[in-house]
């Protein structure tokens, strides 16, 4: 009766479903992940729009900043989802999962699928406003966009998992977020375009987040548009996929090694 292998599908679904239920019960998370970037977009977009000129930002800064705001929503939602790794450890829920005969991969996968669903759903909701920013939506745009949001959401949740796993307090996570994640987002081309021949070119090329921003931007603009250093949709998605897989494997390795309390 008792197998030797860990269970995968049902535990993954159960953990995903739990993420959904928790999210619905925590209204403030919706506000934090969706309203904050929206206000950023409106205030920063309209405030900086006047002083921002250049070929890359053709169509106005509100238009340029829109895909960057979408990535910020993905980032915030994914981050809030993975903070729960720390809360689960503190509340004790996690240890109950760890002693269950579930494949360690399903623990990571359930969390990443949950973060991905929430991040992509909220970002997609915001994307309904794209036509007002001068970014029309048609069938092809929507399909590319959904693919970019799902993959980006998964990759960022996996990244958040890797950061959150060894931490014992949520304060530590906020430090990581302000020190690492927000700068990565700022340098990803979300806020201003990287310029050829400057350090921002290297920063963008080495920054995994810039490929997520690029895939969202290309989903809107198409590969035909001249966007300077921004890679095309296919290559941007490919790099993001590789990033997602690497983060997933790092998260899995962390879970197999055990949490901070086992050292």
């Amino acid at each position: 009766m008792s197998g030797k292998r860990g269970l995968f599908i049902r535990p993954t679904l159960a953990l995903w479903q739990r993420e959904m239920t928790r999210f619905v019960r925590q209204r403030n998370r919706i506000i934090g992940a969706l309203a904050t970037p929206l206000i950023f977009w409106l205030l920063i977009g309209s405030g900086l729009g006047e002083s921002f000129r250049g070929a890359e930002v053709e169509g106005g800064f509100m238009r340029y900043f829109f895909p960057g705001t979408v990535v910020l929503i993905l980032l915030f939602t994914a981050i809030f989802s993975t903070v729960s790794v720390i809360e689960d450890r503190r509340d004790g829920f996690l240890q109950g999962v760890l002693v269950a005969p579930v494949s360690r991969a399903s623990i990571v996968f359930g969390k990443c699928l949950g973060g991905m669903t929430l991040a992509a759903a909220q970002a997609a909701l915001f994307c309904l406003a794209a036509p007002w920013a001068g970014l029309p939506l048609d069938g092809a745009v929507v399909l590319r966009l959904l693919a970019a949001l799902l993959l980006g959401g998964f990759a960022l949740t996996a990244l958040g998992f890797v950061i959150a796993w060894p931490l014992e307090s949520t304060q530590g996570f906020h430090v990581m977020m302000n020190l690492v994640l927000i700068p990565l987002w700022l340098l990803s081309g979300a806020f201003f375009p990287a310029r050829a021949g400057t350090w921002t070119e290297w920063a963008a090329a080495l920054n995994p987040l810039s490929y997520i921003t690029a895939s969202v931007r290309r989903a809107f603009y198409g590969d035909g548009a001249d966007l300077g250093l921004v890679p095309s949709f296919g290559p941007a998605m490919t790099v993001t996929l590789v990033f997602a897989v690497v983060m997933f494997l790092l998260a899995l390795r962390a879970v197999r090694r055990g949490g901070p309390e086992s050292r």
């Binding site: 269970l7 049902r10 479903q17 739990r18 689960d88 240890q95 109950g96």
Partner: peptide
């Protein structure tokens, strides 16, 4: 466990269902 391994935000039934699913 000494501190119950439950999700405080879920109902009793949701917790039990989730736990059951973890065991297939």
């Amino acid at each position: 466990f000494q501190s119950p391994a439950l999700d405080p935000q879920l109902t009793v039934e949701e917790n039990l269902r989730c736990a059951g699913s973890l065991y297939g």
